[in-house]
């Protein structure tokens, strides 16, 4: 199949991660972190992790293409 799974997967996690991180940093009321996630801004931290994972998928896809 010509569609490399790393492309949709990479974009999905990159976009989702950035949206969640952005929401966590700029929009969400910080009180929700006290109420739910033991004070951690889990949206920001884990959103960044998701975005890095997505970017990693895209990077390795491009690297694979370059090697071919």
């Amino acid at each position: 199949m010509n569609l490399d799974i790393k492309v949709p997967m990479g974009w999905f996690f990159l976009i989702t991660g950035l949206i969640i991180a952005g929401y966590g940093e700029f929009i969400a009321d910080p009180i929700i972190y006290q109420q739910r996630s033991l004070g951690y801004n889990v949206n920001l931290y884990w959103g960044i992790v998701l975005a890095i994972f997505g970017a990693g998928c895209l990077f390795f896809r491009n690297k694979g293409n370059a090697e071919k």
Partner: peptide, 11 residues
């Protein structure tokens, strides 16, 4: 419901 705030809850 207990641990995840909106955003991560969606995930």
């Amino acid at each position: 419901a207990h641990f995840l705030p909106n955003g991560m809850l969606g995930l």
